[in-house]
């Protein structure tokens, strides 16, 4: 007798936990043959708010981690993903990808994570400055993360679009609330399991499945979200989110990119989500000794 396969219940990921949506709702996205993939959580506004609370709580400690340590944790995500490569390829194929395309997408995702892992302790050196002010002050500018970043994942891919938006945000010390691809949600949930086993502190990445159309408005109008990034959104929804973002002057970026291209990774995706802070301090100037020996 053949063994009965154990099916996975797909859950959402909030504050390091895997609950189902508080609303109890579900939807059935279809595979390429028109067959239901699974009962996926149709997350609600309340789930979004809970995720923002978790992300805000995680932001302080995560942004204060040593940059080197953040780099190690990001690298650990790549290690964990590598180990579960077959599972992601399988899920991508169930969602309609060819084997070649699926393998390519997973490998590129792993390499992109490694790329951003390396930036953690470098971007601030590259983009900071010591400013030669005319008065007797020491003055420098350095980068600080914006805070809680809302992410509406790219909708036409299951994994690479998600990874390409989340990684530069957390690389720079932000925490995130991510809305997965509505039609291709499987890899987002499995990616949450990778995150869970990668030493990423609870709440730094929160992933919700469901309708971005429904949830993104809550994210865009949330007063405790500092930035919103989206990718390849239709104009109408993008404009609606831009309008809702104004109330707390959320920084909003809409990237029109094909993330499957190899070079769609760069420093500016990190720096877009950084504030520049300038610090001044007087320099004692009592005369006498000079440095001109």
């Amino acid at each position: 007798m053949s063994r009965l396969e154990v099916l996975k219940t797909y859950k959402i990921f909030i504050g390091g936990q895997f609950p189902r949506t508080e609303s109890g709702r579900y939807y059935k996205p279809l595979d390429s043959k028109g067959k239901a993939l699974a009962n996926i959580c149709l997350s609600s506004r309340k789930d979004v708010r809970n995720a923002v609370v978790a992300a805000r709580k995680a932001f302080g400690p995560w942004s204060e981690r040593a940059a080197f340590n953040r780099g190690q944790i990001l690298y650990r995500i790549a290690e964990m993903l590598e180990g579960r490569q077959a599972q992601f390829v399988d899920e991508l194929m169930r969602q309609g990808s060819s084997k070649v395309a699926a393998t390519n997408e997973v490998n590129l995702s792993i390499d992109r994570i490694v790329y951003y892992a390396g930036w953690c302790d470098k971007y601030n050196q590259v983009l900071s400055s010591v400013n030669p002010v005319s008065s007797s002050h020491f003055n420098f500018s350095s980068l600080e993360p914006m805070g809680v970043v809302g992410v509406v994942a790219e909708q036409s891919t299951s994994l690479i679009g998600l990874v390409s938006l989340i990684l530069p945000a957390i690389c720079g010390g932000n925490s995130t609330v991510v809305l997965a691809s509505e039609k291709l949600p499987l890899c987002a949930v499995t990616f949450a399991e990778v995150i869970h086993s990668s030493d990423v502190p609870a709440g730094v990445i929160n992933i919700l499945t469901g309708s971005p159309e429904e949830m993104a408005a809550t994210l865009a109008s949330h007063m405790d979200v500092n930035a919103l990034i989206t990718s390849n959104l239709e104009t109408k929804l993008s404009n609606k989110l831009a309008l809702l973002s104004v109330d707390n002057l959320k920084r909003k970026f809409d990237y029109e990119e094909n993330w499957v291209e190899k070079d769609k990774q760069a420093l500016h995706y990190i720096s877009d989500l950084q504030e520049i802070k300038t610090t001044w301090h007087p320099i004692e100037n009592v005369g006498g000794a000079s440095s001109s020996y």
């Binding site: 003055n139 001044w280 301090h281 007087p282």
Partner: peptide, 10 residues
Amino acid sequence: CYNKFDPTSP
């Protein structure tokens, strides 16, 4: 210090 400004300072 307070209210210091300079062209080189963002």
